[in-house]
Simulated assay, not measured.
Amino acid sequence: MTTIRDVLDTLDGAYPAALAESWDTGIGLTCGDPDDPVTGVLLAVDVDAVTVAEAVAAGAQLLLTHHPLLFRPVQSVAADSAKGSLVHRMIRSGLAHVAAHTNADTAAGGVNDALAATLGLGGTRPLVPHPDGVTGSGRVGALAEPLTLAEFAALVAERLPGTAGGIRAAGAPDRIVGTVAVCGGAGDSYLSAAAASGADVYLTSDLRHHVVGEFVADPANPAVVDVAHWAGEWPWLPVAADLLRTAHPDLTVTVSTTRTDPWTVHAAAPPVR
């Protein structure tokens, strides 16, 4: 019989808590008894009303997400609050929740390696290495064949799960890109690292107008590709699912394909003149 503690041990072996950023206080078990048995696990990027309902409907006893539920300090988990209602729903349903956040971002085989592999990058290395040289934030790797920026953006749109916002790129469309830096999630703090890495293009999420405009104005800097936060992190879920299936063959492990990206509508603008 597999327990929640057994699953936590497996996750900590692959994505050690020690690799989490110092500000990341939301990782690990949010609710649930570590000694409870578990037969079903649902993996999702976000813990919200939709994925909690999906886990309960699937008969899972554990919801594993990338994003934490209680990321910032709270004073109450009352049932009439947004986060509190989720905690109450999970406890009443016998559903535990665990988050693997920046520890899964930086670990070998984690979120950024999954993103790089999805894009077909080879010879990858950390964008911002940790002292061990193996782990670190982001990844840098090479495409099998150089592409124009426009072609690379199309490749990204093909490889990542679709969202209403789609893919945006900043830079000359015909610029040739061969070396790619990536950072799943919000990666504007690593723009300077991407420039120093020798990458031709930097792919991340949640980028801002003035920051991008000033960055690409310098021709020595990489082009930039902005993807939906949810889409850039989703490729890790099947990897983590395979990890759990291998370690615990008795578990039923399911990956949610429900799009929890908050942007739901996209209206195409007329061509730029």
Score class of each variant (00 low, 15 high):
A53D: 12
P219R: 09
I176Y: 02
L42C: 11
P270H: 11
L119A: 02
H101L: 08
G32A: 06
A170R: 03
A247P: 04
R139H: 08
L63W: 01
V265D: 15
P126L: 11
A186C: 06
T252S: 12
G165N: 10
T258C: 15
L203P: 13
L160S: 02
Y202H: 04
A18W: 08
D188Y: 10
I4C: 06
V265P: 06
R159S: 10
M90S: 10
D226E: 05
T2P: 14
A186S: 15
P129G: 09
L62Y: 03
L127V: 12
V134I: 14
D188L: 15
A60G: 09
V225Y: 00
M1W: 02
P34K: 13
D6K: 12
L63K: 11
A104I: 07
R125H: 09
A78E: 14
K83T: 10
G28V: 05
I4T: 06
G184N: 03
L121F: 07
G84F: 11
S256K: 01
A44L: 03
L149K: 01
A20W: 13
V211D: 08
W263G: 14
T39N: 13
P161Y: 10
A142N: 13
H266C: 14
D46W: 00
C31W: 04
L19W: 01
T135K: 04
G40V: 03
P131W: 07
T163F: 03
A142W: 14
V180P: 08
I167A: 01
R89V: 15
G187F: 04
G28D: 00
H229E: 00
A169N: 03
L143I: 06
S22P: 07
P173Q: 05
A100I: 07
D174V: 04
Q61R: 12
V77L: 11
H130N: 15
P249A: 10
R139A: 08
R175S: 02
P249F: 15
H229S: 02
A169W: 00
T65Y: 03
G122L: 14
I176M: 13
A241M: 07
V74K: 04
S85N: 11
H210V: 04
G109I: 04
E151L: 05
A186L: 14
L191V: 05
P146L: 02
T260H: 08
L69D: 06
G162D: 09
A217D: 03
L11K: 00
G32E: 03
S205T: 04
D113N: 07
W263A: 09
A199M: 05
G120C: 09
A169K: 05
P146S: 05
A53I: 11
H101N: 09
L115V: 08
I167K: 01
G184H: 02
T118G: 06
E54V: 07
A116Q: 04
S137T: 14
D24I: 02
T102M: 08
A142M: 13
A181E: 01
V87C: 12
A100G: 13
D48R: 01
A164K: 05
T65K: 02
L191A: 02
V225G: 00
D250T: 15
R273N: 15
D46I: 06
V56S: 05
V201M: 01
T135G: 13
